[in-house]
Amino acid sequence: MAEMPGIDREKCDGCGLCVIVCHCGALTMVDKSINIIETVECDWCTDCEAVCATGAISCPFEISIE
């Protein structure tokens, strides 16, 4: 199961910008709210997080040491 970006639905204003910039089709708009489809195509480019003006999308990185 691939981890996917997180959505804070309270912050999401339904502008849909993240859906437009997502190159792998992981994000869709359902009833003016963002829905995320799990896909291995998501390469964590974080463009969705970068364009979100309300901070509703988060792409956290797990930090570890070898």
Binding site: I63, S64, I65
Partner: peptide, 19 residues
């Protein structure tokens, strides 16, 4: 990044976004 893994004492730290 260094501090998130406790200076190397912890193998894994909390998750952080670029923001």
């Amino acid at each position: 990044l260094f501090e998130q893994v406790g200076g190397g004492q912890m193998g894994r730290g909390p998750r952080l976004t670029q923001q």
